[in-house]
Amino acid sequence: MNTKLFLITVLSVFAFANAKPNDNSKKTIQMEKVTFNADGLVLSGHLYKPANFDSSKKYPAIITGGSLTSVKEQMAGTYAQRLAEKGFVTLAFDYRNYGESEGQPRQFEDPELKLKDLQAATTYLLSLSYVENVGALGVCTSAGNVAYLAAEDDRIKAVGTVAAWLPDESVLPMLYGSEDTIQKLREVGLEAKKKFANTGENDIILAYHNEDKTASHVGPMEYYMDTTRGGGVKEWKNELSVMSWGPWLDFDPMSKAKEIKTPFMMVHSDGSALPDNVKKFYNDLQGEKELIWGDGYHFDYYDQPKQVNLAVEEVSAFFSKNLN
């Protein structure tokens, strides 16, 4: 087991915060809008290419994904750009039902459908003549989604997670109050699903709020409430389809760890979500693995220089070792 405790230095924060607009690596990163198909749906992505990209060469590629309801312009895009600056081809995309991707009902969450989308993204990247191997990086909810991917698809050669959201059945009462509440949410979700099938009407609730108890996630949600951060990304909607409750409560990435032999790195902290589950997941992984324990809070790993720098430096070295 290769476990490292890492404290990012003040100098790295200074370097991130004071990067110049004409920095050569950032100036020459290429980003293009792309589309690819999944189950007949057109999914929308941003494909990033590194500095001095040469289509006659072969590059390691990384799929990036973000939190529940997030879009490619949020944390997926942040990490895709930063990893492209490290020499990778990267793809940040909108899962079906979200952002610019097709799919109905809108804002509907289903881990099994997200697995299909990640597999379609893998197929797309491998179809590019300049891509050699593919890895995946998941932030928050997408950490669990890429765990599903790693357990199912041996085309993925390395996986990284940042501030992973790794629930299982045992933590649901703590998250939602009681078994009775969980059952009621399942029933509400099932009724919404029936309503959509019969009328085409998609019941929507807030995805995040600091206080509103009708939201799916209630608490200090500064990243989403702050219009200078994730809440100000115009492509994002603070909405969740009510019929998501069933598949969302069934989301169980913890059960996938023992099936994963793919090289796996996890970046987490005591202030990030479900740290005990992350440690258990790590212990259950069957292949080469690294655990990086940083500091800060969960949302810091979405966009704050210190935590993003830590994650990028660690996962880029890991991917370089395992994708080249």
Score class of each variant (00 low, 15 high):
residue 3 T to K: 13
residue 5 L to E: 15
residue 6 F to M: 13
residue 6 F to W: 09
residue 12 S to G: 07
residue 12 S to K: 12
residue 13 V to L: 10
residue 14 F to E: 13
residue 20 K to A: 12
residue 22 N to I: 09
residue 24 N to P: 08
residue 28 T to V: 03
residue 29 I to C: 10
residue 32 E to A: 00
residue 40 G to I: 00
residue 42 V to T: 15
residue 42 V to K: 14
residue 45 G to K: 08
residue 45 G to Q: 09
residue 46 H to Q: 14
residue 51 A to Y: 08
residue 52 N to R: 10
residue 53 F to A: 06
residue 53 F to M: 09
residue 56 S to H: 01
residue 57 K to A: 02
residue 59 Y to P: 06
residue 61 A to F: 03
residue 65 G to H: 04
residue 69 T to N: 07
residue 69 T to R: 00
residue 76 A to M: 01
residue 84 A to T: 09
residue 84 A to E: 04
residue 87 G to H: 06
residue 87 G to L: 09
residue 92 A to M: 08
residue 93 F to I: 10
residue 94 D to S: 04
residue 94 D to W: 01
residue 94 D to Y: 07
residue 95 Y to S: 11
residue 95 Y to G: 00
residue 96 R to I: 07
residue 96 R to N: 09
residue 98 Y to G: 06
residue 98 Y to R: 05
residue 100 E to W: 03
residue 100 E to G: 11
residue 100 E to V: 03
residue 101 S to D: 10
residue 101 S to P: 08
residue 105 P to G: 03
residue 108 F to G: 04
residue 109 E to D: 12
residue 112 E to H: 09
residue 113 L to P: 01
residue 116 K to I: 06
residue 121 A to M: 10
residue 124 Y to K: 11
residue 125 L to S: 00
residue 129 S to W: 01
residue 130 Y to T: 05
residue 131 V to R: 02
residue 137 L to S: 06
residue 139 V to T: 11
residue 141 T to E: 14
residue 143 A to E: 07
residue 150 A to I: 07
residue 151 A to N: 08
residue 156 I to T: 00
residue 156 I to D: 02
residue 157 K to M: 02
residue 158 A to K: 02
residue 159 V to M: 07
residue 159 V to W: 05
residue 164 A to D: 08
residue 166 L to I: 13
residue 167 P to I: 14
residue 171 V to L: 05
residue 174 M to I: 09
residue 175 L to N: 10
residue 177 G to F: 09
residue 180 D to I: 11
residue 181 T to E: 15
residue 186 R to K: 15
residue 187 E to N: 14
residue 189 G to R: 11
residue 192 A to N: 15
residue 197 A to I: 06
residue 197 A to C: 00
residue 199 T to D: 07
residue 201 E to S: 04
residue 202 N to V: 05
residue 205 I to R: 14
residue 206 L to N: 00
residue 208 Y to P: 05
residue 211 E to H: 00
residue 212 D to R: 06
residue 213 K to G: 08
residue 217 H to D: 15
residue 218 V to I: 04
residue 221 M to E: 15
residue 228 T to P: 02
residue 230 G to T: 05
residue 231 G to Q: 07
residue 234 K to C: 13
residue 237 K to E: 15
residue 248 W to T: 13
residue 250 D to I: 03
residue 255 S to I: 04
residue 257 A to Q: 07
residue 258 K to Q: 12
residue 259 E to V: 05
residue 262 T to E: 02
residue 262 T to G: 03
residue 262 T to V: 05
residue 263 P to M: 01
residue 264 F to D: 05
residue 268 H to V: 12
residue 268 H to Q: 10
residue 269 S to A: 13
residue 273 A to V: 14
residue 276 D to F: 00
residue 277 N to L: 08
residue 277 N to Y: 01
residue 278 V to Q: 06
residue 282 Y to F: 10
residue 287 G to H: 02
residue 287 G to V: 07
residue 287 G to L: 06
residue 288 E to I: 06
residue 288 E to V: 06
residue 292 I to A: 09
residue 295 D to S: 11
residue 296 G to H: 06
residue 297 Y to R: 12
residue 304 Q to K: 15
residue 306 K to C: 02
residue 311 A to C: 06
residue 317 A to P: 01
residue 321 K to Q: 10
residue 323 L to V: 07
